[in-house]
């Protein structure tokens, strides 16, 4: 027995297990911490500093937060982002799960339909937005023409969709569902492949109906996937920016009123006003909201799993 093995034996079983685990994480974690975590922590520290990217950094305490809480546009952006998230998350989840269940059946042309559902996600945002603005044009779009035929209301009484402050958020929610449900469908499809078909067979033998099979087999078996989809959907909804800019921004590239979102505020603060401290303060709020949701969800998942 040489000294090396002795040394290894010297390690407790626990320490050895830890080491093995860390060795699994290391390749990702080293790269991740160096190129994402370090700059990210630096950015969050900036929230108590004042920095324009060039001149010396100054400590300003909670000034950035005080300013943020007094800033009407911040509250507007937070409110819009929350509204958007509240609409997008459940509906996208339902649509994606429905699509996945449907396209997990043995169907003719299944691959074709799966690809088609994924399509709006990969198509250029400009193209998707152009089609959308055509379909939902208040005066000339097919959607309002159909509504006009059904309700017989004049066009001016029909929703103005993206051009109307009251309809802006619902419009962008529908747009987002349409564009991204194929993406979440793919995740659900991957998750569904892990459901043991024997469970269904034995349940069928026991006389369980389709609804019960869904409730007692599919849903619990899909729990980890659902947790993932839920978290990613929430995070992506909080970080929404591109979709709003593409649909609502004119040539000056600004958002206002009901179309303002949090990341837009961050973008403005960082790159238009060169106020990195203020941008970081908003980012920190975003981070904390998601962190709290994560902790709640994570605890829930653990309970659910036991």
């Amino acid at each position: 027995m040489n000294s090396a093995t002795q040394a290894r034996k010297g390690l407790s079983r626990k320490a050895k297990e830890n080491l093995i685990a860390y060795s699994f994480i290391a390749p990702n974690f080293i790269g991740f911490s160096l190129f994402t975590l370090v700059p990210l922590i630096f950015a969050l520290v900036l929230s108590v500093l004042s920095w324009d990217g060039s001149n010396p950094i100054e400590f300003v305490g909670f000034d950035n937060f005080v300013r943020m809480f007094k800033d009407k546009t911040f509250w507007q952006a937070l409110q819009n982002t929350l509204l958007y998230t509240a609409g997008v998350v459940p509906m996208t989840m339902a649509a994606a799960l429905g699509l996945a269940l449907l396209l997990n059946q043995k169907l003719r042309g299944r691959n074709f339909f799966r690809t088609v559902a994924f399509f709006p996600y990969v198509a250029s945002l400009v193209a998707v937005a152009a089609v959308w603005s055509f379909l939902f044009s208040p005066t000339r779009g097919p959607v309002n023409q159909v509504l006009h035929m059904i309700t017989n209301l004049p066009v001016s009484k029909l929703p103005g969709w993206a051009t109307d402050k009251n309809w802006a958020i619902p419009t962008v929610i529908f747009f987002s569902i349409w564009k991204t449900m194929g993406y979440y469908m793919v995740i659900y499809l991957a998750g569904l492949q892990n459901v043991n078909p024997e469970l269904y067979e034995s349940a069928s033998l026991d006389g369980a109906g389709a609804i019960n099979r869904f409730r007692y087999i599919t849903i619990p078996q899909l729990a980890p996937t659902t947790f993932f989809v839920l978290m990613i959907l929430i995070i992506n909804s909080f970080k929404v920016y591109d979709i709003f800019i593409t649909i609502f921004a004119g040539a000056d590239n600004v958002l206002s009123g009901t179309t303002r979102v949090l990341v837009y505020q961050i973008y403005n603060a960082a790159f238009r006003s060169l106020n990195y401290g203020y941008a970081s303060a908003i980012a920190l709020v975003l981070f904390l909201i998601v962190l709290i949701i994560t902790i709640i969800q994570f605890k829930g998942e653990k309970k659910f799993g036991e």
Binding site: F35, F238, L291
Partner: peptide, 24 residues
């Protein structure tokens, strides 16, 4: 560690793009 991992996804890239660029 895992919760930290997830929560970092929430920070928009616009917020830490500059420090990251400086490191690179």
């Amino acid at each position: 560690l895992f919760m930290g991992y997830i929560a970092t996804i929430a920070v928009p890239w616009q917020a830490y793009m500059v420090p990251q660029f400086i490191i690179m």
